[in-house]
Design a protein around this nucleic acid. Sequence first.
DNA 1: AACGTTATTGTAAAAACTTGCAACAAGGAA
DNA 2: TTCCTTGTTGCAAGTTTTTACAATAACGTT
Lengths: 140, 140
Amino acid sequence: MSCASEYAPQLRSRGYRITPQRMAILHVLRHSGEHLSPRDVYQKAKKDFPRLTEPTVYRTLEFLVRNGLARPAQAGNGRLRYQLATGDHHHIVCRGCGDEIEVEHSLLESLYRKMESTSGYKRIDSHVTFFGVCPECQQP
Amino acid sequence: MSCASEYAPQLRSRGYRITPQRMAILHVLRHSGEHLSPRDVYQKAKKDFPRLTEPTVYRTLEFLVRNGLARPAQAGNGRLRYQLATGDHHHIVCRGCGDEIEVEHSLLESLYRKMESTSGYKRIDSHVTFFGVCPECQQP
DNA sequence: AACGTTATTGTAAAAACTTGCAACAAGGAA
DNA sequence: TTCCTTGTTGCAAGTTTTTACAATAACGTT
């Protein structure tokens, strides 16, 4: 699969290994849309690689996040969902009706740079869900 | 306990009920510091009110968040911790070691105002966890 | 003070997630 | 190609969090 050739060098060069489990999970993240729960990933990746187990999925997702290949997205309830670390955008969810719109990542760029300089942290870059009240729900 | 008189009116006026479970949990949040896990809260509050059960703790914490009395803070691994909703701040979690620091809410104010004007949403205001790499983990 | 409504809780069981450890296999070296 | 090292995985058992529903109790009303 073409995914492998793209991600493998990044991992191998840091001393990590390329395994079919990791490739299957990357493949799912790449081709199955955004905001996938660990269970989503498990069920889909299992089709590619049936010996896959759930603990491996959890460990791999964490691993991919640590290495910047995936990004965690917070669902409303605190459970983590995952997606590939590209095509960056965020969401605002209406507290009233649950309606959801996207926010360009560029809006957050300057905030990130400001946080980096005041905190000493680098590579701040996160998928974020904000909450607000949409125009319709603002009517009395 | 003095906690009750402070929070009770807020809840009662919205049609919610004052229960010893809720009071015990608020008491814990008030007097046991920040970033408490549901289990921390359970074990401490149980001393005040031994009939307390774990599902009640989870439900009550969520309830307090919905009503603005408590605030969730994400630990590095995605597990939620809770604290009283005062002194608004956010977190940056290090992707490497999980270390965590606070970010002043004021840093985000202008972003929120900008998002409100471009999106039409109002009252945007969220507790957010960002991810980055802390100074120690930036060493090669 | 007793009553009724209905928000809230406890119970029990399931689902989601984590951990420890022995077995395995990726990839460099011989 | 075969051997070794050690990063990864599977297994099994633990812990944490959620769910469904019947029982309970807060509190406005009588």
